[in-house]
Write a protein that binds this DNA or RNA. Structure first.
Length: 420
DNA sequence: TCTGGGGTCCTAGGACCC
DNA sequence: TCTGGGGTCCTAGGACCC
């Protein structure tokens, strides 16, 4: 059996933890740059605020209903996520952390009369007690069905107590008939439109489609999903693998046309990619740089380009990455455009240990100890104290974050104060 | 004025090999 | 009239997830 544990309105719940007076208040959390809504409490959902809503378009509604608005506080969410996950680990032999707010648990070789429902309720209570984060739990024979069960648990908290178990054929069919096809895990916008046009409305309808058709139009991925919904497990827990691509990309707080500004940003993104590569003991063999203008501004000339720069040797040195990223930027930068976003993606990632030595050019041998030292300093101080000259040394955090809450759980100076 | 960021997998077709 | 057979690797595009 698999269980899917999903935190309810995770970011909003994290913000609420330290401001309990907001318990029944509508809350939204904004993306980077305070751009759009990426999390909503149930109250905010009821007020009709859609996922991804542009903050400035909904400002009036925020004011009108006294909706509490937060900038995203990833230090807080990341730490709370770790706490939830470590509580779950005490309750399941095997766990896959699927995202910041979700985990699959696997229960193998359980006795036939094992009471999954009570066990799920115990887990839920433990998470609430130890972290204060409300979760929903779905339990079933496959991952896809545990997703279905999870949605039912979330939708009917009173009736289910936040935990729903699919353990009979009858419940499976009922659950599938209740699930709209566009809400099925693995069926996205494109496929759901296509399926709806064929009269497929529910997950159940989807399971009734001929296998060959599903295989042909939705590939083996669709077929696997169909099997999963039919109760045949095709997906197992996944163990964390080193990343195959690592990206650092940002929108700017406003438009920028000058090369120097972009160069500084791209350097900084390359440095961050280097840190991430070193953290997973990898090197990359190619680096992609992209820039583009603001696609929403139809009144401005548009420009968008990317380039992949192959490296002569695998590297994770911030210095090397910055050099090649700057080269890439020079290749694609065009004067006269108002740029809104840039990014660096390192690709073709290989383990640090098995480096292919190039006959003519080799990595700078001294970079390695230098990077180790920089990482050590920066990690111990918790801030980026050591930078390259191509980065803006004065700049710390220029992203717009006007409603940022304190880092309650990860920064001593920001810890919550309790009055006696 | 303002519209996020970071990933994965699969397939078809082209280029290339012997 | 007739023009082999069997492979691999790479890439772009499409689809999906949170």
């Amino acid at each position: 059996m698999f269980a899917l544990v999903d935190c309810n309105n995770f970011y909003a719940s994290c913000e609420r933890l330290f401001q309990p007076q907001l318990k029944r208040q509508p809350i939204v959390v904004l993306s980077n740059n305070d751009g759009c809504v990426i999390a909503r409490s149930n109250e905010a959902k009821k007020l009709g605020i859609p996922m991804g809503a542009a903050a400035f378009e909904y400002q009036a509604l925020f004011d009108q209903h006294d909706i509490k608005v937060f900038s995203s506080n990833y230090a807080l969410y990341g730490d709370m996520s770790n706490r939830v996950m470590s509580t779950l680990k005490e309750y399941a032999p095997e766990i896959e952390v699927y995202s910041i707010d979700e985990a699959f648990l696997k229960f193998d070789k359980m006795l036939p009369d094992f009471d999954f429902l009570s066990y799920g309720k115990r887990m839920r209570k433990a998470v609430t007690q130890e972290t204060g984060i409300p979760v929903s739990i779905g339990i079933a024979a496959t991952k896809a069905l545990s997703k279905v069960a999870n949605k039912i648990a979330k939708k009917f908290p009173e009736r289910t107590g936040g935990v729903y178990l699919i353990d009979t054929e009858d419940k499976r069919i009922k659950g599938l008939k209740w699930t709209k096809v566009e809400d099925v895990w693995g069926i996205g916008y494109r496929h759901s439109k296509r399926l709806q046009n064929l009269g497929v409305q529910t997950a159940y309808d989807f399971t009734q489609l001929p296998e060959e058709w599903v295989r042909k139009t939705m590939s083996v991925v669709g077929l696997r999903l169909q099997n999963e919904l039919n109760g045949i497990a095709c997906l197992d827990l996944e163990t964390p693998q080193p990343k195959k691509n690592i990206a650092t990309t940002r929108s700017f707080d406003h438009n920028h046309s000058d090369f120097q500004y972009l160069r500084e940003r791209v350097s900084t993104f390359a440095v961050t990619c280097g840190e991430k590569l070193r953290a997973q003991q990898s090197c990359c063999n190619a680096i992609m740089v992209f820039i583009h203008t603001n696609g929403h501004r139809k009144d401005l000339p548009q420009y968008s380009r990317n380039v992949v720069v192959p490296l002569p040797y695998p590297s994770n040195s911030s210095i090397t990455l910055t050099q090649f990223a700057s080269k890439g930027l020079e290749m694609i930068f065009k004067q006269g455009y108002a740029y809104k976003k840039a990014g660096v993606i390192v690709m073709d990632i290989t383990p640090e240990t098995v480096r292919q030595i190039n006959l003519f050019e080799n990595s700078h041998i001294k970079h390695r100890p230098l990077m180790e030292t920089i990482d050590r300093i920066n990690n111990s101080l918790g801030v980026k104290k050591v930078k390259l000259a191509s980065q803006d040394v004065g700049r710390t955090w220029k992203m717009r974050q006007e409603k940022l809450s304190p880092r309650y759980t990860t920064q001593l100076s920001e810890i919550i104060k309790v009055k006696a």
